[in-house]
Design a binder for these strands. Sequence first.
DNA 1: GAAATAATGAGTTAGATG
DNA 2: CATCTAACTCATTATTTC
Length: 633
Amino acid sequence: MDGNTSGGESDEFGWNTEDELEIASYALPSCSNGTLHGGEAVAGSTEASSSSGSSSTKMIDHFVGMGFSEEMVIKAIQENGEQNTDLILETLLKYSGSSSASSSNSKLIDHFVGMGFSKEMVAKAIQENGEDNTDSILETLLTYSALEKSPQAQQDVDSDEYSSELEGSFLNDFSDINTSDGEEIRKPVSDKEDKLLFLASMGYAVEEASIAMERCGPDSTIAELTDFICAAQMAKASDALMGELEEKPKQFFNDYPNHKKRRMLDYGKKQRFEKKLLNGDDEQIRLPIPMIGYGVPTEPGCITHRTLPEAAIGPPYFYYENVALTPKGVWDTISRFLYDVEPEFVDSKYFCAAARKRGYVHNLPIENRYPLLPLPPHNINEALPLTKKWWPSWDPRTKLNCLQTCVASAKLTERIRKALEDYDGTPPLSVQKYVLEECRKWNLVWVGRNKLAPLEPDEVEMLLGFPRNHTRGGGISRTDRYKSLGNSFQVDTVAYHLSVLKEMFPGGINVLSLFSGIGGAEVALHRLGVPLKNVVSVEISEVNRNIVRSWWEQTNQKGRLIDLADVQQLDADRVEHMFNSFGGFDLVIGGSPCNNLAGSNRHSRDGLEGKHSSLFYDFFRILNMVKDLTTRH
DNA sequence: GAAATAATGAGTTAGATG
DNA sequence: CATCTAACTCATTATTTC
């Protein structure tokens, strides 16, 4: 049964490496000596040279794989020891980049002095903790300052001074942001208040601090909070600039369902006011019908012009993605943070045989987009030819629903088979209805007489626009393949939006890819033929990082791939190192976690402030840093 | 202990209906 | 306008199997 499916697919479609190589040689003619299976050959030899198994050589290979010279890597490891890979990476970037050798340390000192600590104290704290761990430096500083002043007295004074204001502004202004009636405010955490007080003592406005607490979550470190506030202040400054320009009407959104005047990051009463307006109904972001954004290749009604808010205009270009169907107000917040750019809502059913309703906030041009070729199959029949034979006439589906992270159980498909076997020809309407409901819920396809089955991972890869076997091998389990794929971009959709970059950057681009997953953005750019110069890919899952690196090697990329694990560890210093090293980032791209937004989540659909989905604010924070660096240079 | 398996609704929206 | 129906959703958790 399953053998049929996988056996018959070899001749159906060109989803193998052929087009990869074609594009690679087209984009990078210099590598024409590449063998037919060059990727494997190269990867194999690299592995062979590292087969000694010692951790040291493994680490050397790791960094050499990123594109650094072996000499350089060895030197960096000698300087920093084997433990701290982050530090090694920074050293390597310092070697290879043009960044001034002096500044890291003094910049760090300035950073903390700017927070209100004395220079001596900061220098001492840095000596104790090393330069790399800003969190522990801050903690040390916190300890120092607590020792210096009487902690008891300090807290009392602060809490007296701020508590009333805290109760007032904090609760009033934000209790209505949470749709759940502010349940986390009901349980005031002392830790939370400590952080607030500390931030206040550093000179930050309590209001800003409490907003940062809200956004960064209860477990956030002081460093994260200060980063956030810093970013918000910068954004606010640019917003003030924008305010003067806000008078001009936005006449280009006539056909686009929602145009409204908003200000970004206008905290406090204004936001509460807007929130009420939103609840009214007029100002709520609504999803377009049909969900084609500014247009898709196959449908009429393309919009080729829009006006971006001044603050949103690149460089750098940015591209943010998340699920379209979120709890109320989420996209308003996302849009507000991302410089008031209207989200472009697109359903990938216009690009492939599966639906995928997503919102994209980006500042890319929208003229002269073009799709990836060959166009992928647009309905189930074409995408899964073997199912056609078994498809009953009373199943009207031509598109699959959204590909998710879990698949149906065998028990379910067996129950359905039994239910259908009771009837010879067409089952009664009630059974049809039951079966169709399950088919739609679980994306089942017909693989035999009365036999339904969930999609194979291979098929999901194909539907999402990835090369075959993209997520296969490398120790990843079948379950995890479904999960990684279910969390990914639909490549054709994203590539359509990114296609405008092709002629703008014939020499290639530097990409900061956050929440990379299995590399949907990278694959899209590569399939477009946009040369990838330096790609910094930040992804928390190790198996996903391995998938991207493996793809990178198999497609003979000539650029450099640097993979990092945690966006929360990506602070200003590291971004600046890489920025200087590469000469800037041309594109910041990513889709932040949807766990707490997605409708499938029964347990913790907490909205944008949820444990995982609040990482959106890190996307904003990092994008804002890159934006700031870009305008400064 | 990893991997596979199976069970677990609600929130939101659009559209029809009255 | 109120109310109902229908449709859909980048998931989490507990349990079993290997």
